[in-house]
Structures are given as structure tokens and as C-alpha cells.
Simulated assay, not measured.
Amino acid sequence: MKAVVLDSQHPDKIRLAAMNLPTLGVNEAKIKIHAAALNHRDQWCREGKYPNLTDAVVLGSDGAGVVIAVGNEVDSSWIGKEVIINPAIHWGNNSRVQDRNFRILGMPDHGTFAEYLHVDADRLHTKPEHLDFERAAALPLAGLTAYRALVYHGKVKKGDKVLITGYGGGVAQMAVQFAVAMGAEVYVNSGEKSKIDKAIAMGVKAGFDYQEASWPKQALDMSGGFDLIVDSAMGDTLSNLLDVVRPGGSIVFYGATLGNPSQLNARKVFWNQIRIQGSTMGSDQDFSDMLLFVNGKKIVPQIDSVRPLENALEAFEKMASGNQMGKLVLKV
């Protein structure tokens, strides 16, 4: 089969390879992948930013396709079904935090950037009927991460004022769609006006250019402060977030692309009783709840572009540039 694998010795650090899957395990299903979607995680693997990377592993965490075979201990009724895959492996039984054995599909396990995939059958979920394969493939990792940040940790409710930072990335876009559908009053920030305009067209009340030093004042003047902020940047932007979150509010962050904050105004945090909460992916229950919500509200993930698996390098390069607006999808 054709697959996109990590190759640290190749000039592009990835390559299209011909490979064979191992024997199907008794608890596994074989999926004919129809579409797969990139996440920043894939690009960071390409850049060598994760520990214990292994060459020749198929990248890709997000995928949708059709089950074509199952192991001896898997219900045969899965055969022929259109499915999406929960990429969170071995979360464990504690809903509050992942198990020490937790990992994400696509490294170190073979992932979705391939014609076929073997995966434990307990990772399978029926594809939402209102989504085609390309949009279904864009949902799992970003949808799960956004849902847990908003619902499990953020406890968002109708009427809450919510700020989603860094609008344009996959998780931020899903968080915006979910929060709007939940009846929250949603705001975003971004470094590009076109992305802010897109967010407003999707139901966001207003957006702020985080390159402008005055954006926190603009946000406070317009909103009066936020009940919940969902962030992926951290770094020294945390001081701005502490300025615009309401007393008693929450900042939930699922990434730290700008690194660690150089300082923390601890007095502001404890005096205003602000909660700063980290979040990663989500539990199996979070994934099931997210799918129920997506089906009920008919949420459709936003797609930047679709290209064949053979042109995966183009998608990686676009992700590296940061110019995408929606998910980058590979059609297999």
C-alpha cells in the first residue's frame, strides 16, 4: 500500500512509501482510508520536535473510511460500515487525566496517511451521516480537543462570554463552532483580518488583532471580560489573558506554541480567583459526547483544501507556513 512515512534522512523528512501492514490482530479492524487530515502534530513530527520519533512510521491521527475486515474477536457487523477513528489510545479509566500509557495515533503507531490502517476496534465510531469522508476526517483530534477544553474543563453554558485565541487553527475553529452552537457569546483573536472576518461570518460577535498592543483594552471595552478563554499559545500572552478574563473565570489552554510565560502575576490569579487549566485531547467519553453534539447540531468542520495522498508534501508545507484556513485534507 501507499503511505506517507517519517524519514529523518530524506530532505523533506517525509516520503511516500510502499509498505505492508502487519497481520491483523484479533481485536483490530482493517480500514480502507478514504480521507485523512493533517494536524500540527504531524508537522512537528516532521520537524523532529517530539521525543522518541521513529523513521518509517506512517503519520496521521485523523481519518475516515470503511471497515473491510475484522479480527477474530471483533463483531463482524462492523464490516462495510463508514467510520471515523478516535486517535486517543489508552486514555484509561480516569476521566480527569490520561493514563501513563496514553498515546496518539500516528506516532509511535502507524497512522492514517495510508491506503489502509489496522486499529483496535474500540477506536471505531460510526461516521456522522451529514459529513462526507473529507469533513469527517477533519473532525477527530481537533473536535475532541476543543470539546474537552470547552465542556469538560470550561463548563461553557448558554450566554457565557468566551474568547477563543489564535483563530484559524483546527482546534480553535472547532472550538468556535462548538461554542456558538452552545449559545455562548463568542469572540476571537487572530493575527489576520481575513480570519477574523471568517469567524464573524460563522457567528462570532467580534475579533481582535493580537498584533495590536491595545487589543486587551478593546476586548474589555466590548465584552466586559470573559467567563472562559480557550488558548493554545501561552508564552507571555498569558498576561494579556489575565487582563481580560473576568474574576472567577477560567483560562483553559491546550498548547504552548509560544513556550512558557516569563512571569506570572500570581496576585491577580488568586485575588480574582482565576482558574488556569491545562487540557490535552480527551477521554473516550469525551469523544462519544463530542460526536453526539456534532450529530445533534449538524456541525461541519471547515476545510482549507483537499489534495491526493501523493501530494502530501504540499499540505505539510502549507501547514508549516501557517496560511491555512481550515483543515488540510488528504484524499486517499
Rank of each mutant, 00 (worst) to 15 (best):
Q302C: 09
E317L: 15
K327T: 04
E314F: 09
I229V: 13
Y210G: 01
N265H: 01
G278K: 08
T237D: 10
K318E: 12
S279A: 12
N260Y: 02
G296H: 11
M319L: 15
I303S: 06
M222G: 10
D231Y: 03
M325W: 00
Q285S: 15
N295Y: 11
D289Q: 14
L328R: 03
A233K: 14
L241A: 05
W271P: 02
M290P: 01
D227M: 14
I299T: 01
E314V: 07
S279L: 05
F208M: 02
E212C: 08
F270L: 11
E212R: 10
D289G: 07
L313I: 13
V294G: 07
K268V: 03
K318H: 05
A312C: 09
G259T: 09
V252H: 04
N323T: 07
V245P: 06
D284K: 15
P216S: 05
T257I: 15
E314A: 13
G278S: 11
K298D: 00
M290G: 10
G207S: 06
G225M: 13
K298A: 11
R267W: 05
G255Y: 05
A266L: 14
R307I: 14
R246Y: 01
L241M: 13
P216A: 11
D231E: 15
L264Y: 02
D304G: 02
D236G: 13
V244P: 01
D304W: 03
S239L: 12
P308C: 09
P261A: 04
D227K: 13
F316A: 12
E317K: 14
N265C: 00
P247G: 06
F226C: 14
D236K: 14
I303P: 00
G249C: 03
N311T: 06
Q263V: 07
S288R: 15
A219M: 07
V294W: 04
D289P: 09
G296R: 08
P308N: 10
I229T: 07
P301Y: 02
L309Q: 09
L258I: 06
M281R: 08
A312F: 00
S288K: 15
N311D: 14
Q302K: 08
L220C: 01
D236T: 15
L228W: 00
N323P: 01
W271H: 15
G248A: 00
G259E: 09
G224T: 13
